[in-house]
Design a protein around this nucleic acid. Structure first.
Lengths: 215, 215
DNA sequence: CGCCTCATGTGAACGCTGTCAACATAGGGC
DNA sequence: GCCCTATGTTGACAGCGTTCACATGAGGCG
């Protein structure tokens, strides 16, 4: 039924596609991965999938809707990458600090590795945030949630003041997110790998020591 | 010569405007202030100023060029707000920590007060960053530079390890910038003033303690 | 087996955008 | 007082998101 002639271009023999929604999301994700949120143009995606521009509107209410879907995909992908990092660190209370670092590192390194998707993931209001807070057993874990779990661990070991626990989640997230943003689309975009590593290490250390400091 | 009929709409009696560039920047800044970078549409700005769309192209190479100009204005405005905060804190080595906090607070609070301008200020590559580093005596001080000066002070008092000084600037900036971004366009956008204050206080404390911790 | 419904796709169109090329105007230096 | 040139205008083009009316055909029902 479906064959790809030109790479990225498709033509079809049937009137109905059969899996248009998925195909659109896939093509849109590829576009965003390559060029960021601004690179997502509905007509272009439809062209690539080999369908008329309006066909997309049978599956997505608008350009923003499609972009929001890509953002959700990106957040899942990011969480997956973070989970991989986390798997490399042992469990148990002794390694709680190391796990916090791993999650933070995963966050920033994903942003650097996939700048387009990262920018889409936290774009506009299409973001599921802390207000509602996700279900911990969500089959699609959220980057934010992965971070909060680490802080819960730290609070459980007594290294993080419980009174500070609530607000600490935001503090840690802000630090890591800020570095990611500056590295991806901000003035730090030109940094070399070595400098990036130095900065990331220092930031993770600062957050860890700052959050668990006793004076 | 120039009269404003409808607010924001202008008509003129002379063929030449006389101060078009400034008028365009002003109108564009107002648009961005109200609706963020996406709200800047060249034709609309020209309409508001009472001029044909293409007249703008005599003063700006492109839409991106005009937006970059607005971004520069926004960064200056932000630095101005930060300087005001800074003026409220005494000089001298004793208050170096307080001055760092004041600058960080000014950064975040400006972002919250002027979300549209803040988003434009750090949009894309139109940003003068640390690589080149601005002249300290720049008549238009940069938010980044104001932060770096505080860290220099802290290093001078001995509270900040000199070996750490270089990278600490980025760490501190990342933390503050990250919180600003999350509050302005991220998932923390819905936070109330009290929660915002609590989070900001904790973040500033974390950065200060984390950067100057001795273990 | 055949029909009919309705989800899914198409075509043409609207208004908007950024941008270009050719032309109009008039202010300031000789 | 005249012309040069910076500045502003008109008209056009391609591409965008989105809508409306129509086409197609896969799947449920008799």
């Amino acid at each position: 039924m479906w064959t790809v002639s030109t790479p990225g271009r498709a033509h079809r023999t049937t009137y109905h596609h059969g899996d248009l929604r998925n195909a659109l999301v896939e093509a849109a994700t590829a576009a965003v991965r390559a060029g960021g949120p601004a690179a997502l143009v509905v007509r272009e995606i439809a062209r690539e999938v080999g369908v008329s521009p309006n066909a997309a509107y049978r599956h997505f209410a608008s350009h923003a809707d499609l972009l929001a879907t890509v953002a959700a995909v990106a957040r899942r992908d990011m969480a997956r990458a973070m989970l991989e990092r986390l798997a490399g660190v042992p469990g148990g209370p002794r390694a709680a600090h190391a796990r916090l670092g791993a999650v933070g590192r995963g966050y920033v390194e994903y942003a650097v590795a996939e700048p387009g998707l990262f920018r889409a993931a936290f774009d506009g209001a299409a973001v599921a945030g802390p207000p509602g807070a996700a279900d911990p057993r969500d089959p699609h874990p959220d980057p934010w949630w992965l971070l909060q779990e680490r802080l819960d661990e730290l609070a459980a070991t007594g290294d993080l003041d419980p009174d500070r626990r609530a607000v600490a989640g935001t503090t840690a997230w802000a630090a890591v997110h800020g570095l990611a943003v500056l590295l991806v689309e901000g003035p730090l975009a030109g940094l070399g790998a070595a400098d990036r590593e130095a900065v990331l290490t220092d930031l993770l250390r600062t957050v860890d020591e700052g959050l668990t400091a006793r004076r």
